[in-house]
Design a protein around this nucleic acid. Structure first.
Lengths: 302, 302
DNA sequence: TATCCGAGTTGCGTATGCCGCAACTCAACT
DNA sequence: AGTTGAGTTGCGGCATACGCAACTCGGATA
């Protein structure tokens, strides 16, 4: 161990009570090592969950990115406190990240935020994903046929993460949701993604059912009922549940092992998508989602 | 110094002949520390480009991301070769990145590619950028008024990087360009961004004028003439220059110091945007871009 | 204007965390 | 079966990243 602080232990209280400043660790943020997504123990080192990191500094750097993503902007001192390291260490880590434009200073001398280097990388990352590549032609066709907006989502952490979007002709104005993280219980995509999980996992993922509109599902039993429907029918619907005036229908995309890995959705303004039409869209949507699954190696039965 | 290797030179073959394995350093990829973007002299120092990295491992990790962005997929051994480090080192770095889903294995045991953790971060990054936030309402209005697709771009490295996009009603089908990097000389956005730079810098940025269509500008003199027009007229146009059938007009966005930091564009299918109409769009586009500049603190004269 | 305070950066010495080595595992070919 | 080639892991030494403290810088207070 180097200093009594931040010795990366596993269980005991292990506060980073070290140097002069009272350094306190913070609970896992949004990104976080995979494995434990739900119930985390309280008051743990920020980078401690899961397996040991093979390279400490990289782990700390990633933690910085994670914390910045969660908080928006943070100063060096605050970052140091959250990591449980000395100011100077945080400063050097941030400087290393800044050199690659992964973070940037907000104003001459001050706080830091995530930088556009991440955008460059993300652009390549999304292009390299099999799903996106395989789904794109299908999405384009869907958008052309229906005139609606097509979205491709994946389960990430405990949110739906939009991977790709194709805007159709009748979109009033749609901006980009790609990279955005959306609550699971209030969207058609979210319901479909949840429908691939067992009841226990679902409960772990949706701890709180936040109401975004009067029509948002806030009752766990009702949500589970909808998930059951989604499992048997092969699609899910959400109308005015995340945002008033927004309606959508989604269907699952499966990988070669038959697991629901992604979700494909059609969305548009509620006034143009009455219940009958929305439900009718399953006839084009489900085959499209199935085709994507096929391209990914799925050989099962829809 | 640790090993004599990985001297990150810029251009010549510059072998990092070091340890046992024939490790070779690689020329800078796409991301790269800011500062020197074009070809600098081949100084032999380790931290050659710009300043030394304050944290070696973080620097190496970032290099890995950069190399993966450039190559798509790479194995551990190949990464090690490019970094000029031992296999095991590369393996551990990659493992650290994988823990945060910044990279992921393509198939059980094999090559690595960029991961979706980057998407999560990028989503937050773009949301936190002042420009995007300030430009969004303006973009929405533009899209609603014109029915065309609106894009917001920034100069990054030696490409145009799309930061945000709003699709209008008449978009046939538009998919997401956000995060994509587009050549500067073949797009209206690129021309506008270049118009903010002096002739010397422009020449350094566009080394080669690749032809994407028969109408792509491949003559430096002609490009510079267009840039001059853009400087005096306050907008730039590109028709069928990047992709056949794609037309666009762009106008500059300035920061508080009056520097051209971003570019706002309207684009649509060529058959719907005859030269007269395209040019006429400047009457709505330029005021919109100016409004964004104002929001960013610009007090100058359009 | 002078003084303090809080925040970020930098030189330095140290021990710790990382790196290279080599042995290991595992597939894919021959 | 043997061979090659690629990725992972235990180990020991030493370079590296850390903590410390002194420094700079700007803003607030008196």
């Amino acid at each position: 161990m180097r200093t009594p602080s931040h010795g990366r232990p596993s269980d005991p209280p292990t506060i980073g009570g070290d140097v002069g400043a009272g350094t306190r660790a913070v609970t896992r943020g949004s990104l976080g090592p995979p494995g434990t997504s739900a119930g985390r123990r309280a008051s743990d080192e920020v980078g401690a969950s899961g397996k040991e990191s093979p390279v400490q500094s990289v782990d700390r750097a990633a933690t910085i990115l994670d914390q910045l993503a969660e908080a928006g902007e943070l100063g060096v001192t605050e970052l140091a406190r959250r990591l449980g390291v000395h100011k100077s260490t945080a400063s050097r880590l941030v400087a290393a990240l800044e050199k690659w434009e992964l973070v940037e200073q907000v104003e001459g001398r001050g706080k830091y935020r995530l930088g556009i280097g991440l955008l460059r990388l993300a652009g390549t990352a999304v292009a390299g994903l099999d799903v996106v590549e395989q789904a794109r032609p299908v999405c384009r066709r869907l958008a052309a046929e229906t005139g609606l907006t097509v979205n491709l989502a994946v389960l990430s952490d405990n949110h739906a993460l939009y991977l790709d979007q194709v805007a159709g002709t009748s979109a009033l104005q749609s901006y980009n949701w790609v990279g955005q993280r959306i609550p699971l219980h209030a969207t058609s995509n979210g319901k479909v993604l949840l429908s691939g999980l067992d009841r226990h996992t679902v409960r772990a993922l949706v701890r709180t059912l936040t109401a975004y509109t009067p029509k948002t599902i806030t009752d766990l039993a009702r949500l589970e009922a909808e998930l059951d429907h989604a499992r048997t029918d092969g699609y899910a619907i959400a109308v005015d549940e995340l945002e008033d005036g927004l309606a959508a229908i989604a269907a699952p995309v499966r990988n070669a092992h038959g697991e629901i890995t992604n979700s494909l959705s059609l969305s548009g303004p509620t006034f143009r998508l009455d219940p009958a039409r929305l439900r009718g869209l399953r006839r084009v949507l489900i085959p499209a989602a199935t085709e994507v699954s096929r391209r990914l190696g799925w050989r099962g039965q829809a």
